[in-house]
């Protein structure tokens, strides 16, 4: 699936939620179900700056594709980074860099998350893109 297709999937999923509680319950569940972050990568260097909670991001190449792994000590942050990993992981660095993400705005996370978290979200995306630049040839 392309990044665009994955974004459409997320947007559709969120269109079913009728209130903030349903939306946040979903994000929290995503957070609870995000596993598999390598413990040895839980280093201070891998913490994304600009988030109020601790969010770790690790990235590596698997063939042509860039793989992201992430974790957080807060569930909502973990759910948010899980959404981003779901959309951006397993894509080529070139695709990651050429796509301007639109789903965050479309599912109303920009306006509903507090500024600090919103900044956290943009820091997450910035860091993920920085990895894509680093792994571009």
């Amino acid at each position: 699936m392309t990044i665009k297709e994955k974004e459409e999937e997320v947007i559709e999923e969120f269109s079913f939620f009728e209130d903030w509680m349903a939306k946040y319950e979903y994000i929290i569940d995503l957070g609870k179900n995000l596993n598999g972050y390598p413990p040895e990568q839980k280093t201070p260097e891998n913490i994304i700056k600009g988030c109020q909670s601790q969010v770790w991001l690790h990235a590596y190449m698997d063939g042509e594709k860039l793989i992201y792994k992430a974790d957080s000590d807060a569930l909502i942050s973990k759910g948010l980074i899980s959404l981003l990993v779901g959309v951006l992981s397993d894509q080529t660095p070139a695709d990651i860099l050429s796509n301007k993400l639109k789903f965050i705005e479309e599912i109303g996370l920009n306006e509903h998350l507090s500024p600090n978290r919103s900044n956290g979200l943009s820091s997450m995306i910035k860091t993920m893109k920085a990895y894509a630049i680093a792994f571009s040839k």
């Binding site: 903030w20 509680m21 946040y24 109020q52 909670s53 000590d73 807060a74 909502i76 942050s77 978290r117």
Partner: peptide, 20 residues
């Protein structure tokens, strides 16, 4: 519960507290 999670969910309910 992580304080940031609680703070965000309170904000969704119109309640402003500080976290951090």
């Amino acid at each position: 519960c992580h304080p940031y999670d609680v703070g965000a969910l309170l904000d969704q309910q119109g309640i402003a507290v500080r976290t951090g």
